[in-house]
Nucleic acid binder design. Structure first.
Lengths: 212, 212
DNA sequence: GACCCTATTGCGCAGTTGTCCAATAGGACT
DNA sequence: AGTCCTATTGGACAACTGCGCAATAGGGTC
């Protein structure tokens, strides 16, 4: 295949890995699959990535970070705490649950399950998870400071809300037809309103564009 | 190894499979692992189970149902709605999160991740999931009827609480040291109290034995 | 003890997988 | 054109996996 600079090649390898991952899941992504997608030999992959674990972690990191960055950008636009929290949920739903990128929800389940077997993937998954938590806890902290939200421990509330979001992903992916995405979206907002002592509907009403 | 009747042998094979699954996860359970655990040859397993998929599905079903049955038995002892809800959380924590049985939390992640690819496993997983939901919704319905709990939709509240429990399993298993089991246990109760408009501490105080 | 049924063995097979490495080829510079 | 660096090749390798089969051994019955 055509020669590339190391930077270009590494990027191409990760892109191909993401494509295969989206199709076959993390556990089903092999060196040979990536090589075929890339149109090169399998040896080339190991010339740039020491192990398959490293490559999978890198590909997962890039794909997952895209969603996180989208949320962080939304939050950085400012506004009051309730508006920002509504933006958080909106962007989360669009980016992750609707799978706007190359990244289906299934990948999250794979990442969580594989984390126990692949050290690099576990580290990546945990780091991203903590960034999500920090972003959400920040918004909650603002709301508490402004007196529009009530909770004893913004960190704990953020963990609870994130755990619920993860659990809802689970329900939607693994048990499909018993829970629709729309229901999951609405329920997560309801639970957040209750968790933070907001008035019912505060989160869904705060965003008027595009919604219902 | 000692000769056994087909029924005994099948039961022994499933028991050994459950033991290995608890240690290595579903994806990490191989024929040879089970044979070693059982103390027999690997050929014997295939003499009783047509495929490894069948064996894994059977073992998962039995192990998962054991936890559900434990909770159902606890609930059947009666009591008022708050007491029964406390029993639900207690038994859940002990059975699933503490892994008092042979059933590690990792198995749930594996099962959920594999559900999209393995039809038999998906059916089993979804059926059990619905039974969990029904059990919890039943308790909540009782609480609403008795006027000690408030929620618009017991079914939806049950789904939310179960999703949170699933999400917390996720956090504990996949991201280990950022969230302890004790915290997860306490947070799930806090969230349930908020979801059902119980007074704070109602669930943790309802059980005095063993707790703190 | 001889017989027979079958539970059990243990190795072989074909297919994976990740990893490694000597050989090759592409392209920039003299 | 010749030289050299390195990106790339493609197959070998060992360790796996699920699976199948001819051979074996264990324990009842006569």
């Amino acid at each position: 295949m055509a020669r590339m600079s190391p930077e270009e090649r590494r990027a191409a390898i990760v892109a191909a890995t993401r494509a295969v991952m989206a199709r076959r899941g993390i556990a089903g992504t092999t060196v040979r699959d990536v090589a075929a997608e890339l149109g090169t030999s399998s040896g080339l992959i190991h010339h740039y990535y020491a192990s398959m674990d490293d490559l999978l972690a890198e590909a997962f990191e890039q794909a997952a970070r895209a969603d996180l960055v989208e949320v962080l950008e939304g939050l950085s636009q400012g506004g009051n705490a309730v508006e920002r929290l509504a933006i958080f949920f909106d962007t989360y739903d669009r980016g992750i649950r609707d799978g706007s990128g190359d990244f289906g929800m299934q990948i999250w389940l794979d990442a969580w399950a594989e984390a126990s077997r692949r050290p690099a993937l576990r580290r990546t998954s945990r780091r991203l998870n903590e960034e999500w938590q920090r972003a959400l806890a920040d918004v909650i902290g603002q709301g508490v400071d402004d007196g529009v939200m009530q909770c004893d421990d913004p960190d704990a509330s953020a963990w609870r809300i994130l755990s619920l979001l993860d659990g809802l992903i689970l329900q939607v992916v693994a048990h499909g037809d018993v829970l629709s995405r729309e229901q999951a979206d609405a329920w997560s907002r309801d639970a957040a309103e209750r968790e933070l002592r907001l008035r019912p509907g505060a989160l869904s009403r705060a965003v008027s564009v595009g919604g219902g």
